[in-house]
Design a protein around this nucleic acid. Structure first.
Lengths: 157, 157
DNA sequence: TTCACTATTGACAGTAATTTGCAACAGCGT
DNA sequence: ACGCTGTTGCAAATTACTGTCAATAGTGAA
């Protein structure tokens, strides 16, 4: 909902939906491609290339192939990635529950929320600066409630 | 203004102020240390280690020394760094105009604003999620006014 | 001013996350 | 089943750092 002239944002019900799209677009559905998508469909949240590769049953599955597949899937609007802190990029399927992220720079915990929840924040930023903020690629970074509390003078660390 | 139990946030008028603090804290003012600070004082905005090193007149000045000095200066609250996009960390002096950043993920331009300008946004985020957001380390990322306009249906790319 | 102590350096190797080059291989339309 | 060419595995390259260590050079004291 509300995706003006952006990514298609179609939701894929199953892996086979994605395979169809890939073939229609003239791509091949290879084993690494399949493995990447299986990992993404199985994952709870955003996952790293390392996780994708090491949980695969085929030992010769290379990170470079995972990167190449993810890159293509991303260019087709099927996958996107988020940068949570200093670690590697984390990949997830588009459409299956759009999320935006708040990251605590102290404890490292990331909270994911539905985009609607950030519309007020986004609205204020757009009115004030003309920016349309997206917290799905780079999160909102700061201190979470717990770390804010731990920071308060009078509260011992 | 408003720095509850955080970094000292003293402003350094000159390089020599910094040198004094370093010596008082028991550190030595070496040539690389001097070069790093000169680069930071001369810079218009946040700069990379690469820029610091390659604009130095001493050819044997190593990036690793720059990193070590920046790390210490940062731990003393004299320097901080920001991540603008996928490139290397960018370093700047603390105190000489606290800034927070808005980054356009399309055109790559970063706008810097005074923290006060983001207080309304920050307040809303804190009330809604309990997070105290800081956009001085990771920026607000989205589309700037120009790129939003270019994105509008009816406006050719 | 010289001395000695040791923080800091240059040089270089190491690491993590990717990216690139290329010959061999394997999807897929026919 | 065939063959075209998109993809792969493998290896080497790249980028942004981080770690090691003997040599050097700031600093306070003599």
């Amino acid at each position: 909902m509300t995706d003006p002239a952006g990514t298609p944002a179609r939701a894929f019900e199953s892996i086979d939906d994605v395979f169809s799209v890939l073939r229609i677009e003239g791509h091949r559905v290879s084993t690494p491609c399949r493995l990447v998508l299986e990992a993404l469909f199985a994952a709870e949240g955003p996952i790293s290339v390392q996780r994708i590769v090491e949980q695969s049953p085929i030992p010769e599955f290379e990170p470079s192939s995972a990167y190449r597949n993810l890159e293509r899937l991303e260019s087709l609007g099927i996958v996107r990635h988020v940068h949570l802190g200093h670690g590697p990029s984390l990949y997830m399927l588009v459409g299956s529950g759009e999320k935006e992220f708040l990251l605590c720079e102290r404890c490292g915990r990331a909270a994911s929320v539905d985009p609607g929840e950030l519309d007020a924040v986004r609205g204020r930023i757009q009115r004030q600066f003309g920016y349309r903020a997206r917290f799905g690629h780079f999160p909102i970074v700061g201190l979470c409630a717990q770390c804010v509390a731990a920071d308060k003078p009078g509260t011992p660390a």
